[in-house]
Amino acid sequence: MVADYAESVGKQIKLHPRTKGEVAHYCNTCEIEVFNILFVLEQNHKFIVHCVDCARRTDAQLTAFVVLQQITFEELSQIFDSCQLNPHKQGVIC
């Protein structure tokens, strides 16, 4: 939904893969963790991350923001599809 919103206001989402050991990103305003779709503003030669809600409050059309995606939706789908909950553990009868 976040990616759809960004595209609906005309923002191109740029792929920016995570680097090994890269720390999690948090919104500069509300400090919530921002996963995968980052709304970035450049301020004083630093790149400041915002969540979608704070980015919308700052600029509803996101004109000042660059939108980055760290993991493709295909990769996320593969990760989700390959997840198994205790695949080798047998049920326990009490």
Rank of each mutant, 00 (worst) to 15 (best):
V52I: 09
V66F: 09
P87M: 12
E75P: 01
N86P: 00
E7Q: 10
L38M: 08
E42M: 12
K20H: 09
L41G: 07
S77W: 10
I32P: 00
C94S: 15
T72Y: 03
K14P: 01
E75M: 06
Q69C: 03
C51P: 01
P87I: 09
K89C: 10
L68S: 02
A6Y: 00
E22F: 02
V67E: 00
S8H: 06
H88E: 14
I13P: 00
N86Y: 14
E74H: 04
I79M: 08
V52N: 03
P87G: 10
S82C: 10
I37V: 12
Q78E: 15
R57G: 08
V66M: 13
I48F: 03
Y5V: 02
F35A: 08
V9F: 00
N86F: 12
I32H: 09
N44I: 04
A24G: 04
Q78L: 13
D81G: 05
R56H: 11
Y5F: 14
H25T: 05
H50I: 03
T63F: 11
F65P: 01
C54G: 05
L76R: 14
V9A: 02
H25I: 02
I79N: 06
F39S: 02
V2E: 04
S82T: 12
A55T: 11
I48A: 01
E74T: 04
H50N: 10
Q78T: 06
V52T: 04
I93F: 14
T58W: 09
I32S: 11
G91M: 10
V67Q: 03
